[in-house]
Design a protein around this nucleic acid. Structure first.
Lengths: 354, 354
DNA sequence: TCGCGAAATGTAAACGGTTACATCCGCTTA
DNA sequence: TAAGCGGATGTAACCGTTTACATTTCGCGA
């Protein structure tokens, strides 16, 4: 009845309206329940019926309406991914890690980034009802984590790179990675090691700085505020920091940048000023983004399993068993030429000295 | 009736069920229609009622159910973005461009990448009913464009970097950019210019090669098959290509890589083999990804307005007026040191010699 | 041939909103 | 004062599925 109301004159409706399960049912001479059963492989269906319905649906190009299905089943087959921004190799790699897992599970991904202000992020977080089955949230911006507190608790959430009470999370061993860098440089004889840090309110940056200081203390080197430069994870800020160092009379012999982007900026600056890496100054980064090994000289960096971060977070989100609420991913130091240690080799971070 | 059925014993249902518009209506002493009107700013509402409903909704933490709303309005406020893969600066930048526009329009983004096989992509393309209002599809893989043909025609689609009959599209002037590179190198005196190409079945790659050849002809240089190396847009393939060139007795004096990733790989290879860029060999890339200017030497590259690509595609998708069905984005040559032309400067591609 | 349990299918009520239409209300106006 | 009117609100159908439950059909042994 419903669908033949306008079967008379205006055969082309506004948009050649999509065919519904009712249309298929009618054409196949069965009820909508049967069609539904066929499409969901539920309940007993006679083989002949099954084939006929499938054939009719195929011919009519029937595709189930996702929203209707979601409304009925209370499942969306969609995961929300909230990142601080979408720019750069790091985030792209995180998304990819999640996407690969999601695809194999038949899940879709809603992404959203660049949340300038708190209000905006709050709006995104609230718009989830009926849109996603779960959320993966990375918010290294320290204060933003409080936002999660007033998220409705029926939404499963996994937090990346931050700790939020009552929520499972996946973090990177930032401090451990940073300590390993300093330890390595110290073993190469460096004592005056500069550190180009990330944003003040960024959790990762804070921990990396902490690891740097711990490493310096452990190496018996002195922590001077003049050795710590500020930055914001961009190439430009790394460039600026390196320029400052290059301009000094008494230079450090090594520089540790809080991420690879800054290391790349620094490398550029050193090249411009005629300082040779690693001969005049050793340089180490953090993240080990894909192009790190293609720089000149190849950049020694702390490898964080970025794609794993994405993959594991989805696993954790879907894991309803309440075990393993949080994990920390180990990093490893990729030793290349920019630190002056010669050939490439990997050194697994051993735990300890927390 | 609906909601007070279990008001007796089991007050805590399975999940502290979300509050619906009915709950709000009941509590506020109005009908659901009124609540709906308040939330959508539709129809006349007495100020007092408006405020009361809003207050009650706030107190109950009511959030509209997206799927229910979609079902009713036939709008999802969501755009699907289908990319060949999610990896790398290029795609991350495209997504960001779209995301920024989308956010300002209150739209959500479903992304999906790495479509290994045709079947998989077809499945994604079909799963759109009731899930997205429109699709932005980048499929430089030439044969994949045929997939779009059997997409239901009620789904608006914008195609990126490819031409599909009957669909609006945004493309990059690949050939023009490539010609500009060769022209520039020729002006610097180069005649033997090698070209490291991208994947055979990639539309961008094909056009860039075409532009290279056109440029060579225009410059009166000869096109030798020995000058054209194969690659696949990865750093590794650029590295390999450069190694091959370095090993030759009679080397070309310049190399043009079909994208920046390959140029980076090539730069790495040249450094390893002791060839100096640009003194021993000039090098030019394509895409002008953010780190290009931080390489050593800074990489001359063809700038494509990647973020614009994303932004414009969303505009085009939402533009219902049937005008301006397709556009081509102009590229510009960013001259830096890797080509041996000295200081950085931009050169706008003039049109001509198609 | 009949009866019966299981298999197959149908019926209709959700799911949570939106919205055309009906209704009600308080004023203005004749 | 009653009709008329527009603004405010309520009623209920509908969007396209899923699914509990009812009903029909089938196969088979008695």
């Amino acid at each position: 009845m419903r669908s033949q109301a306008d079967s008379s004159g205006n055969s082309k409706r506004r948009h050649a309206a999509a065919v519904t399960i009712h249309d298929v049912a009618e054409r196949a001479g069965v009820s909508v329940a049967t069609v539904s059963r066929v499409f969901n492989d539920k309940g007993p269906i006679r083989e002949a019926t099954y084939q006929r319905v499938l054939a009719v649906a195929e011919r009519m190009r029937y595709v189930p309406h996702a929203a209707a299905r979601s409304l009925s089943t209370r499942k969306t087959s969609t995961i929300g991914v909230v990142l601080p921004e979408l720019h750069g190799e790091f985030f792209s790699e995180v998304i990819r890690g999640i996407d690969v897992s999601a695809r194999s599970l038949g899940l879709h991904l809603i992404v959203s980034g660049s949340h300038s202000d708190r209000e905006e992020m709050s709006a995104v977080l609230r718009a989830v009802r009926g849109r996603v089955d779960g959320l993966i949230v990375m918010s290294p911006d320290l204060d933003a984590t409080t936002l999660l507190r007033d998220l409705p608790d029926y939404v499963p959430v996994v937090v990346l790179n931050a700790l939020v009470e009552g929520r499972p999370s996946i973090t990177i061993d930032n401090a451990g990675g940073a300590r390993a860098v300093v330890r390595h440089l110290a073993a190469l004889g460096h004592r005056r090691i500069a550190f180009a840090g990330g944003p003040e309110n960024n959790g990762d940056a804070v921990q990396r700085r902490r690891g740097y200081r711990a490493g310096m203390r452990a190496a018996g080197a002195e922590i001077e505020s003049s050795l710590e430069l500020s930055g914001n994870f961009t190439e430009d800020s790394g460039y600026d920091a390196a320029k400052k160092i290059a301009g000094r009379s008494q230079r450090p012999t090594a520089m540790f940048a809080a991420n690879d982007a800054m290391a790349i900026g620094a490398l550029s600056a050193f090249n411009e000023t005629g300082m040779r890496v690693p001969d005049d100054i050793a340089l180490v980064g953090f993240d080990d983004i894909p192009i790190a090994r293609f720089l000149s000289p190849p950049l020694t960096s702390v490898k964080v399993p970025i794609a794993d971060l994405g993959r594991r977070s989805l696993d954790l989100l879907l894991d309803t068993s309440k075990t393993k609420r949080s994990e920390t991913l180990k990093t490893s130091l990729m030793v290349r030429q920019s630190c002056g240690a010669g050939r490439t080799r990997t050194r697994q971070n051993e735990k300890g000295d927390s």
